[in-house]
Design a protein around this nucleic acid. Structure first.
Length: 382
DNA sequence: CGCACCGGGTTCTGCCATCTGC
DNA sequence: GCAGATGGCAGAACCCGGTGCG
């Protein structure tokens, strides 16, 4: 059993690394194509940081240097912190160390969010206690801090944090729900309670507007399926809902179940990106001989298709079509597009090796976990 | 038992803009 | 006018397994 857990942990680590890579590398790749501007702005930023360092309180800078903080980065981010007469970097470091953070982690936290050193030890203790009411141990909090120092330090309003917890609990969020929220999307606990209330009301209103009778349940379903809706603007969610409603021409009750079902995930996309992707899906499908109604059906049954980058989508389609799978089959089972191009390619290869006939047997064999898929291949071979 | 259908798990920070209070 | 507080945005998939039915 322990072995299974170990393997799972490894797999999930691997997955997470892949995920990080696929999401995070892109900006780097993009920036490398516009190097001159980046270099230029980097130099300006560096100059600005130098200037800020000159104006700064030298004893703070010296302290931070000793602690291994990237002072240039810190000065550039929040210069005001360094002009203060009193800061609490030593207290902060001691505090975090007592909670199990390493000195490298502490330096990185301060480099990325310098305002952390303006928090008093009493404040830190109080905030930590509040977080501990939701999370099981100190190391979980340290891991969130390491990931996103801003989430913990940006707000000095501990009462607001408490109020949010009370409010969400009153909506029926369990401790387990709150734990997941704080671990996955810690930033939302630094929003003002007023904004959180506004977002909840907004979702309730959407439900009522679409003729729903249980807005509280609707809101909770939507939020638990995609906590990031909390961190997106009402404007964006509204625009996405309107956009999808106009495009799909769904009735009220259909739209209601669409939003709290398969579409929840894509509500947080930037509207521009969603529209751009829809255009490109349309173009691709039309060029393959699709009617508008087919495309609408595809978006309705598999809205996640709007998440996929055009180049990725096109390469997935290409490798499916190349082995004789028809577009009709893909539209019938769009979930095959869920898997990475690499996974799809690998599976197609294995299936061709065993002489799998897609026309006769269909393509849903592709929509399976790896374990089930390999079992299937093994069976076919026998 | 095999298959199709379906839903759910994971992932999400770093930076800029604007408001607020002193 | 300044620093702190808060809001908002860009970024851009992949995978697994439960369950009900024939």
């Amino acid at each position: 059993m322990a072995v299974v857990h170990g393997v799972r942990a490894l797999l999930s680590l691997h997955r997470s690394a892949l995920f990080q890579r696929s999401f995070r590398l892109i900006p780097v790749q993009l920036t490398s194509t516009c190097l001159p501007t980046r270099l230029c702005s980097a130099t300006t930023k560096s100059k600005k940081a130098n200037l800020e360092q000159k104006k700064a309180n030298k004893s703070i800078l010296d302290n931070l240097h000793l602690m291994g903080v990237d002072v240039e980065m810190a000065c550039q981010r929040q210069p005001g912190v360094f002009r203060k007469n009193f800061t609490n970097e030593q207290g902060l470091a001691q505090f975090l160390q007592s909670k199990g953070a390493t000195s490298e982690e502490i330096a990185s936290i301060i480099s990325r969010f310098p305002r952390a050193i303006t928090r008093s030890t009493e404040h830190l203790e109080e905030r930590w206690e509040l977080w501990r009411k939701i999370l099981n141990n100190d190391s979980e909090i340290v891991s969130v801090l390491e990931r996103s120092p801003e989430a913990f330090f940006r707000s000095s309003d501990n009462k607001n944090f408490e109020n949010i917890i009370t409010f969400l609990t009153s909506l029926g969020f369990t401790t387990k729900d709150l734990e997941r929220l704080l671990l996955r999307s810690p930033r939302i606990f630094s929003c003002s309670l007023a904004l959180i209330r506004q977002k909840v009301k907004f979702l309730n209103d959407i439900c009522v507007e679409l003729g729903g009778t249980n807005p509280e349940q609707f809101t909770k379903t939507v939020l638990s399926r995609n906590a990031f809706i909390f961190s997106d603007s009402i404007k964006r969610i509204r625009m996405n809902i309107d956009f999808l409603r106009t495009y799909l021409k769904l009735g009220n009750s259909e739209m209601l179940s669409f939003i709290q079902g398969s579409a929840t995930r894509i509500l947080v996309l930037s509207t521009e990106y969603m529209q751009k992707n829809l255009n490109s899906v349309e173009q691709m499908m039309v060029s393959l001989g699709c009617q508008k109604a087919d495309i609408q059906k595809l978006i309705h049954t598999y809205p996640v298709v709007l998440y996929i980058r055009p180049e990725t989508l096109s390469s997935k389609l290409e490798c499916l079509l190349k082995v004789g799978i028809t577009l009709e089959q893909i539209l019938e089972t769009p979930k095959v597009l869920d898997y990475s191009t690499q996974t799809i390619l690998g599976r197609l290869e294995l299936l061709q090796e065993v002489g799998y006939n897609f026309r006769v047997n269909g393509i849903s064999v592709l929509d399976n976990s790896q374990k089930r898929f390999l079992a299937k291949i093994k069976k076919i071979k026998v």
